[in-house]
């Protein structure tokens, strides 16, 4: 009797430890990456990193200020178009999407979400760069919007579906029109979740590199217009990292550190909103 109980408890314990080890193995890379970045990026992590333009090879100092601005510009443009489009499509799917057209949209959005990002970059190149005959922020933003939008559409839809039918019925029973119920009651009820989805999608596009290679191109100086080549942190990290110079390698680490810092801040904000505003 005792032996059986003991064996059962041992088995319980062993499975628990096994699962915990797996979970640990999953989060381990994140901490290794953070530690490694801090270790190697710390040397170049000075104030000038975020205030100065890049310096030529061999000249010490210099920063990635133009890349930070460029990344924010491109992401901002992608979001300015992507949020209204994505949220409204999500509303359509959740509130009105019963027919064949909606199923087709849902399927296409999932397909789009699965398209490798480099292909979206080539698409941006064909759509913008070739006809305009130059690389530009517009081209980069539209490539990133195609990564941004599917996530926003599906999270908006999912979040609206978690709003109980009783909330919609309560509003309709007060004689509130359906469109107002949708926009001002249902969407408001789900707004924290929708915002979280938007932030997570933003964190995702900020680090995208491949689509920018074909669209933004990069720029050593301050951007001069949205129809001009534009710098971005991931591009700078990429260029510094593949260069043969040691001080540029250091800058690549520092740039990566800034990038992951931004992503962490946004993801943390998203988690905070999801938790607190429920």
């Amino acid at each position: 009797m005792h032996a059986i109980a003991f064996r059962r408890r041992a088995a319980d314990r062993a499975t628990k430890v096994l699962f915990a080890l797996c979970a640990f193995a999953v989060v381990l890379p994140l901490f290794l990456i953070l530690f490694d970045l801090l270790w190697k990026g710390a040397r170049e992590l000075k104030w000038t990193l975020v205030t100065d333009l890049p310096h030529p090879v061999g000249e010490p100092g210099g920063g990635i200020a133009n890349g930070i601005l460029g990344t924010l510009t491109i992401a901002g443009l992608a979001m300015a178009g992507g949020i209204p489009l994505g949220v409204m499509s999500g509303i359509y799917l959740a509130e009105y999407g019963r027919g064949k057209f909606a199923s087709a949209v849902r399927f296409s959005v999932d397909m789009l979400a699965g398209v490798p990002s480099i292909i979206l970059g080539i698409f941006g190149y064909v759509l913008w760069v070739l006809p305009m005959k130059r690389f530009s922020a517009w081209a980069a933003a539209s490539a990133l919007a195609m990564i941004f939008i599917p996530t926003v559409v599906r999270t908006t839809e999912e979040m609206l579906k978690t709003v109980p039918v009783s909330v919609r019925e309560g509003a309709l029973a007060l004689g509130i029109e359906r469109w107002k119920t949708t926009l001002f009651i249902t969407v408001r009820t789900a707004s924290a979740g929708i915002l979280t989805g938007i932030l997570l999608a933003m964190a995702r596009i900020i680090g995208e590199t491949a689509p920018l290679l074909f669209t933004a191109l990069g720029n050593q100086f301050w951007q001069t217009g949205l129809d001009q080549p534009i710098a971005a942190i991931p591009l700078q990290v990429f260029n510094y990292a593949i260069s043969p110079y040691d001080d540029w390698h250091d800058k690549a680490w520092a740039g990566a550190l800034v990038l992951i810092g931004m992503v962490l801040v946004i993801s943390t904000a998203a988690r905070y909103i999801a938790r607190v505003k429920k």
Binding site: P164, S166, V167, G170, A173, L174, G175, I185
Partner: peptide, 19 residues
Amino acid sequence: VLLRRKVGMVFQQPNPFPR
């Protein structure tokens, strides 16, 4: 919509609007 303003309804489960 106008009808429901004249004929109100209270449901089985209380359903105040969240947020």
